[in-house]
Design a protein around this nucleic acid. Sequence first.
RNA 1: GCCGGGGUGGCGGAACUGGUAGACGCAGUGGACUCAAAAUCCACCGGUAGCAAUACCGUGCGAGUUCGAUUCUCGCCCUCGGCACCA
Length: 817
Amino acid sequence: MEEIYTAGDIEARAQQFWDEQQTFRVSEDPAREKYYCLSMFPYPSGRLHMGHVRNYSIGDVITRYQRMQGRNVLQPMGWDAFGLPAENAAIQNQVPPAKWTRENIDYMRNQLKQLGFGYDWERELATCDPEYYRWEQWFFTRLFEKGVVYKKTAVVNWDPVDNTVLANEQVIDGRGWRSGALVERREIPQWFLKITDYADELLNDIDTLEGWPEQVRTMQRNWIGRSEGIEMQFGLSGRDDSLSIYTTRPDTLMGVTYVAVAPEHPLATGAAAGNAALAAFIEECRQSGVSEATLATQEKKGLDTGLTAVHPISGEQVPIWAANFVLMEYGSGAVMSVPAHDQRDYEFARQNGIAIRQVIYPASDDQQADLDKQAFIEKGVLQNSAGFDGLTSAEAFEAIGDWLEQAGKGARQVNYRLRDWGVSRQRYWGCPIPVINCASCGAVPVPEADLPVTLPTDVTVDATGSPLKKMAAFIETTCPVCGDPAERETDTFDTFFESSWYFARYACADNSSAMLDERANYWMPVDQYVGGIEHAVLHLLYARFFNKLMRDEGLLVSDEPFTCLLTQGMVLKDGSKMSKSKGNTVDPQGLIDQYGADTVRLFTMFAAPPEQSLEWSDSGVEGASRFLKRLWKQVYQHVAAGPAAALNVAELNAAQKAVRHSVHTTLAKVSDDVGRRYTFNTAIAANMELLNTLARFADDSDQGRAVMQEALDAVVLMLSPIVPHITHELWQQLGHGQAVVDCAWPLVDEAALVQASIALVVQVNGKVRGRINVSPDASREIIEAAVMDEENVQKHIADKTVRKIIVVPGKLVNVVV
RNA sequence: GCCGGGGUGGCGGAACUGGUAGACGCAGUGGACUCAAAAUCCACCGGUAGCAAUACCGUGCGAGUUCGAUUCUCGCCCUCGGCACCA
């Protein structure tokens, strides 16, 4: 055995071994328990960043640990290869997106291999492969036939200078990122998936996701936003039609003093025809981005349309305002406004001189309503509400609901905040939407025999929008129904489309005749999914939705795709997210070259628990490297002295027993940390502590060396999922024939955990005043007597009377005076 | 603005179910080894007072519950993630 640890050679040898043995190649084996561990696949942006290293290290530790538990473990890897950055790179460097993407994939695949992650590379997929995206095109046409997809107009960010649609992130302070032009809202026709049809199931099934973090489940529930309310009709003065409005607070209905509609609402745009000021206001509202964060934080503005609505109960005429805070996408694009009982309506009414009418009064004395200062938003008792006076808010909800239903002016309705999923993107580098637009037949799905609709890759990309829209050869086709000349759809899918089913495709990535086959039902659902917390809502909700769509199409049997979810925190440098614009990135490659993959993996696992953000530290990496050198040295010194004798537990002296006790308490703790808690940082810390103990244990006797052998074997096995290369080598050097990657996780010897005496903390009035040593089975009486014997305890009791003594078994004693 | 997290020594973090605050590591200080340096090894390492034993203070801020609160409750401050076209 070499005396000095050299990561480079060791890592190359271990990786070659796994490669030759096809260690991580798996197939279906009904006789064994399967375990599917999946990390979110990366966007091939060029090089791995620290977030990837962290994500994939976590997944690899879990994978290797589960292998040691004897399970049939699948861990695949692939590429989320469509997306905006490839187009940006194309504009900047005149390199076609396909070429750029392929080169990035090749480079990053090599980096993943250098890091020693145990993937089954046979299953690798890239979403920009026609062999991959043809199946989502096929699936879309199935959904089309079923009526799950439909087309409607929706607003986008429009850059009037570059004449292109911008992503929200390309809008900076209301201006296009390249042109600097003020962004406009523009309505264009787009394809939607009816995710709202699944809103109830998506909501209810959250309850079954017990392996998910509670915060993610809460965020998804809030995102879906189920509410119960009343949908009612406000009449329109001087018109035959009416205005549909939804409210969750019908108890406040008699306090309505105006109605607000979105600036794009037909009522507002209609009224603008004869109203220059209103037209100017609507135009002004059009000059802003579409993101909800933008709309919610901008100054609340509105203008009276001059139209009036008729209150469904009182018949009173209330003004209709156009307001920039009402979203056309949400509900009917109109809201009733009750300034007395809604803070936003209150501020808007104050600002615009609209009446404030209180109809809800506090039900008890602990509540106060001061409408000179703010709205009273609590529930209470109704007044000034005609026939509903005296009812509580809850009673009024029912009474007003009944009244409206009987009058034919409204109905109880469940509403969702969730909106249907718009999947059209006016981009080049994505999966073409398989639709042909025919003048006489309308939108027609591309027949299965003509799939895939292949994305042309020989293109020049510039800042003025998708090159597809200028490619006659791509666009011009014939209608599959009538055979007349027709035009191909030039929009591509939202890239969330690809990432909504890749997890199932890994099970049968080689199938060229079907989207999924029976192997998907062997591997699905994913047992452990690992990825960034930033995907808590969108990706994870779309993937859950898609899984249900695939189930309903008969492609899968599971209701949910991911049994357990681990949301990893971000990697920070100097307190903020690493990014090129901040210039605070750390390139993993340099660290791999300098220290080796094991050091990088060890540091990322040690610096913080997986769910927390991780603060990068170069000197911390140095520390991780030092630990591996010490581990190497400890094994080297042991091995250099020749083979150890067999362990005979009955012959051990007190010091040897103490070391064995440390080994097995560490083993128990690390098994729990790695297997249940996923706190790899504390698992590593416990091993560091144990190695410190072993370094102080100098015992050349036969049993001393036997204890050391058992201890080093345990440390190597415990660390092997985290630092697989060095432990691969050390395990051989410790005299074992089997590769460490194929070993079983070590078992705790319960007998080694038993101790002759344990230390209890002694408190007086909750403050630590000393410690006592007692036998683990000492009675309460013996413990109390020992406590009272303590000098420092007596001093703090002094002349006071002992009121009670609290004994927490195995931990502490608190004397209350 | 709305939804969800987080805040503990000089730094990253530990304390798992309300029970010893600061494990482990980094940085630092002192020492050993060396001609010297690096590396390595040993010791110390929250603040104040004290030779020490020990005492008091201390987990973002303010209240509360409890024998006991980093942990639970309420209010506030700061910060990070998401907000439907970044992935």
